[in-house]
Design a protein around this nucleic acid. Structure first.
Lengths: 221, 221, 221, 221
DNA sequence: GATGAATGAGGGTTCATTCAT
DNA sequence: TATGAATGAACCCTCATTCAT
């Protein structure tokens, strides 16, 4: 489960100091750009995002930004790639043998934590999905396959009487929909609940509630 | 429950025939523009949508379009207004006295039907929400209040032992999240389930499954 | 032989006066743009030409120019198309039966006149050729075929003993090279000969000299 | 007659070994840059050529290239200078006393060989001429004078009855035009003649044909 | 020397909106 | 009303050149 923003992991191989310093700076800049891009893409979308806005947010000139990126679309693709890379860690099932309660609780918790910590990324992903995933589709090789596997595991659990006979795929949808909601609509959630965002205690409460709701809905024992 | 696209309801007050004809044509054009705008905003977003694209889709020239609308943003606001107007019909609780099973089932069914029939509108709404609702916020006067009322009703039912003691607001969120998912991610849903969209029998199946899941999750009796 | 710049031929079908006036203005503007483009492309090349420069020379704003053209490349293609259209009239052989002296003299005169009257167009063509004709190639359908036919006619004349046994294709090249020179290098020609350009009497002299030289070189009787 | 690409002639004055090695490397690099520049300028023109493309072709970084050249225009000027230096060797008349047949045949052969071996340089020159020679003009000090001398020689021959009374300057133009054609339009020549470029036997044939044509055209005895 | 980084000016093109007819 | 035309502000991106290391 790697939720660190790209570029924050600074364990590069040791090198000549000069090179290392330069590479380090380069990586930092890339990270800054990445973060800026996430913010702008999240609020304005691909079409609405201007490289000027990204450059400003990153503290660069527009020309400087374009020195570091290939194109706006490439930067967007890179952001998406970072997201689906993260998804893998988040969405991977742990050992099926632990049974649905443990495995699904873990999954839900990871997903909720991701929602709390990376709401912008989550929104970019949802927005891309809603557009029909024109950019993302060619990048998602195994997602279908992985989802089918997850559904099979759930079916196994059902067959073993460990949970109610729900439609496994739909259950996965619902799990996704509910957990994702806390990222995509974080502002509204906070507003309606009159609770400040990012309250640690509250997050635990939400995870609890969501977990209980989802497991109960599927009759997980 | 009004799911008809705005502009289709043509029960204008009777008037002088000439004026009525003119007004009628005007209303029809507005409806055409509205529909075109929904399509374009849904797939390209506010920033990505071009008035040219909307005009093309409406069969008008760009200048003609701008004659009928105040501005692109105003048109967008109008579309959003149409959506929240629809929401009211969809989301309104029927008489609390019927109890949670009946009331919530009805609500879920209406919401699912809306998802099936107006996925584009749903997506525009979600996209706007995800941006932090910069345009929508000033337009949503009573939504907070209405949601609070709904939560109160649910709390009542809980107090009466008609359902498990869930957090009412969270339950509403989850209900929203799950039903909305079938609109916002219709393409993906169809893809993953290998089912053609818009199959009537399948829609009934989905409504059933979703209803059961949500009610069970809240322990509705 | 049509050497008029496009847009000058104003024999459009009669129409409603308003439309005709508008169409007329449109055609005039297109002609102005075309002329400006010819000048700029001739002196700066495709890559070096800026739409700003073309717009300035045409007395338009850049945005206005782009309202009338599809793109810089398309405008360039249009210019090239105009040139090869003209070529056809210039280069077409009259009736072979008149014999080489008459037919070739006519051709040379036409080509020289074109060089005098459209040196810029000629240069654009040569420049495009020198680049390997990346843009022009797909537009030249029948040039090869037409040239082969011309070569065959010349071979016929040779077989009939009407001219020396020169390589027909090479003769065509030389004819082209020499006549083209007076367009492509008009400035230098004037400079070296210390003669003002565009002197009518001098043009007749040049045509005479060139004709005699070329015919003698091929031993035309 | 020096047709070697500039920079290839490495007979620099002997010097201290270190300096000599350094100077040698410097000269080699200059030659590499020169060759790369010729290729890029020939196909893209001055405006269309990018220093990046030249650097790539020369195997240097853009910054490195700019360390070795003063500016893009200066490099272009340098290329032009190399070309006109070559022209001198190619175009110089041998001893007038040998008579027009010998002298002109030699000149034509040299010019044709240059066309075959340096088509790119030839094209750059022609392109510059067609633009009106804005860069070249200030560099061509003696060309006018030299051409006048050549014309005088031809006039002499005419006066001696060694060739027909053609306009000497025009004859030089035609000589230039025809021989140049085989460089500037090498691609089209090969295409139209369905002959592979750079065939040694064919080159001899072309030189023969061109020589005969030009001499006959001027009635050289 | 060589290289990554930076920059200012411009490149072509699009667009929402307005205007005149 | 409806349409062609016009406009000014952006937009994404490139480039020759310079700078710091």
């Amino acid at each position: 489960m790697t939720t660190a923003p790209p570029g924050d992991a600074l364990d590069e191989p040791l090198d000549a100091p000069a090179t290392r310093g330069r590479a380090r700076k380069y990586a930092q800049l890339q990270a800054v750009i990445h973060r800026a891009a996430v913010e702008v893409f999240a609020s304005d979308g691909l079409a609405g995002a201007s490289t000027q806005a990204i450059a400003d947010k990153a503290g660069l000139s527009k020309a400087q930004l374009h020195y570091y990126i290939e194109s706006k679309e490439a930067l967007y693709r890179q952001v998406l790639q970072g997201i689906i890379d993260d998804w893998i860690g988040v969405f991977g099932f742990s050992d099926e043998a632990f049974g649905p309660r443990k495995v699904l609780s873990d999954l839900i918790r990871r997903k909720m934590v991701f929602s709390f910590e990376h709401p912008l990324r989550s929104r970019i992903f949802t927005a891309e999905m809603m557009r029909g995933a024109p950019v993302l589709r060619p990048m998602m090789d195994h997602s279908q396959q992985r989802t089918d596997q997850a559904a099979a595991v759930i079916q196994n659990w059902i067959d073993q009487g460990l949970m109610d006979p729900v439609d496994p795929m739909l259950f996965l949808f619902h799990l996704w929909a509910v957990t994702q909601f806390y990222a995509d609509h974080a502002t509204q959630v906070a507003l309606f609940r009159k609770v400040a965002e990012s309250d640690e205690r509250d997050r635990r409460y939400l995870i609890e509630q969501v977990t209980e709701f989802l497991l109960k809905g599927a009759g997980v024992r």
